[in-house]
Write a protein that binds this DNA or RNA. Structure first.
Lengths: 321, 321
DNA sequence: CGCTCAATTTGACTTTTGTCGAGAGCCGTG
DNA sequence: CACGGCTCTCGACAAAAGTCAAATTGAGCG
């Protein structure tokens, strides 16, 4: 991993500018290049993670509602993205926040499990670059051969690329047509190793999917809308890493789940920090299910979702007392 | 630790500017304040660690000499500050580098031991601010009531302040007049707790002192120049956290050491990451002693010192073979 | 050896940011 | 309640950074 001569200059420019606080023209003089080049090198330095600029996300955890949610739901930390806000584009706010939170939670040497979905891909897409060479990003579930840009392997790879980390992908269909084949494939060394390595992760990033016709599982052809509706009647409450969970956050006993190649929920729960990000308000029930199942320790949601969760929790404790 | 209303604005401005990439005038519009105020808030955000800008120090580890030194000395990582350099002020370069390396090595939740000396204080002084609330900085050794600005408690506190961390000081003289009193004081609960907590640190920061009349121990009156010279004849090779070590990096068996209130060398060695920073070329022998005693795992030195260390190591292995 | 093509570098221009002193608001005090 | 002293805020100017098209370099190739 020796530095290439071109990168050498980027490093030097970044060092003089950011660590020593020289002006761009001073850097230019020192390095005997033009100031315009310095400006360009500095941009590259920021883009490649040689220079890291991070903003504290305290603003969003350090808030009464967030604190109450933590207590009510028994989570380690909750971040609430304001929606009324002073933010120009509220729709990306959750993703921007989630990306910052994610980077704040990553430690050197971590092994990170990443699932798949529009939310995760959006986060990957706006995440800033970092220099975390000893980090490994592993894919949590199999692929669906759909024309979407947010395939599991893409999410994993994109995040790995942004962090300058190693990406560990595996190529298997998310869901197979028979349980037998799924079992056989899971027993394959390449796949088995990947799946068994998931419990060793230090951090997980995922969202939760809804059980409806809009689900990626339907859109990508893993299930038909009718099958989805049937599962719903059987008690399906949400989708996590490609698997169907019931209202208690347990894997639903159904043929589909048995045909899936993905991280077992027990492995996910074995991961110390589980960051769940939910963008859509419509995912209230799926989120409740995921929380009930202990599938998240850290949560990023919007203000209205936070409100609903809090009301729900309040009602629950009231009923109990 | 609720955010005060004034800080609220700083956070918001920083978030919009750094996380969302808005321009200052856009931020000003959103927050309904003037752009000048935004600029001021952003400066405060940087100064208080709400926003963190860090530069990779790869440039200085990723270098043939640094790699060879790591191998030769069996260290985890070595950083070499160039002296010929493109840097405007070479004298602060080592400290700037050390501060960056230090910040790179700190993890959330760490307990950090800090010793004392001009080098450490210089590092503290130029270190940028960070937002590490769950970090604790503990003082490794007792105080000397000297009029210097780099008293142990000052070094500890300043670093704690910069990191927004908790500082854990203890107030005892570094050295007492009798061994008996030192023993009694070490047995005091306040002191004992502090000293026994040192082994639990995750990271240590210190330099090494020379055994000569220029030593702080002499300047601060802990020892006279004559006593120092005598210790030198007895085999003293360096000073670490206020204690005298011999050429093997072991605590020298002398009255002075028995009268000192400081971290035991064994406790220091129990710390996983031990960052040693040496600025002066004259500290070659003390540094060799410290390395021999396994008192550092991570090392920051200047190029000429690195050169000498490498030559020394080369000569040693040659003689061995 | 000279040509092309792509990547890099630069100077000149525009936009964005930093700064400073003036003024406004705010408190405790006499 | 008027008065200093204090901090906070703003407008205007100066300084610094970003950008872009043109120029230069350098590598690959016929």
């Amino acid at each position: 991993m020796a530095i290439r001569p071109a990168e050498q200059l980027i490093h030097k420019a970044a060092w003089l500018y950011y660590a020593h606080g020289l002006r761009q023209d001073e850097v230019a003089t020192q390095l005997k290049i033009s100031r315009a080049s310095v400006a360009m090198y500095l941009r590259k330095a920021r883009e490649t993670g040689i220079v890291n600029i991070s903003t504290s996300t305290q603003l969003f955890t350090d808030d009464i509602m967030a604190r109450r949610l933590e207590d009510a739901l028994g989570l380690d930390a909750v971040w609430i993205a304001p929606e009324n806000g002073y933010v120009p584009d509220p729709s990306t706010e959750i993703a921007v926040l989630a990306a910052s939170v994610f980077l704040e939670l990553v430690k050197k040497g971590d092994r990170i499990g990443v699932a798949w979905g529009r939310t995760v891909y959006t986060i990957a897409d706006i995440m800033s670059y970092a220099d975390l060479q000893d980090v490994t990003v592993v894919q949590l579930c199999g692929n669906l051969g759909a024309p979407y840009s947010y395939r599991p392997d893409q999410c994993t790879m994109e995040i790995a690329r942004r962090l300058n980390a190693k990406g560990l992908n595996f190529y298997a269909p998310l869901v197979l047509s028979t349980e037998e084949l799924a079992r056989a494939l899971r027993a394959e060394p390449v796949i088995r190793e990947q799946l068994s390595g998931i419990g060793d992760c230090d951090l997980a990033l995922y969202s939760v999917g809804a059980v409806d016709a809009e689900s990626h599982l339907v859109k990508c052809g893993a299930l038909t809308a009718d099958e989805m509706a049937a599962l719903r009647r059987q008690g399906a409450a949400g989708v996590i890493a490609g698997q169907i969970i019931d209202a208690d956050g347990k894997a639903l006993a159904c043929s589909y789940n048995r045909r899936v190649i993905s991280a077992e929920l027990a492995s996910l729960r074995a991961i110390a920090r589980r960051l769940m990000v939910v963008q859509e308000d419509s995912k209230f029930e799926p989120l409740l299910a995921a929380i009930a199942g202990g599938l998240c320790t850290h949560l990023v949601v919007g203000a209205s979702m936070a409100q609903r969760l809090l009301e729900h929790a309040g009602a629950a404790t009231e009923k109990a007392s």
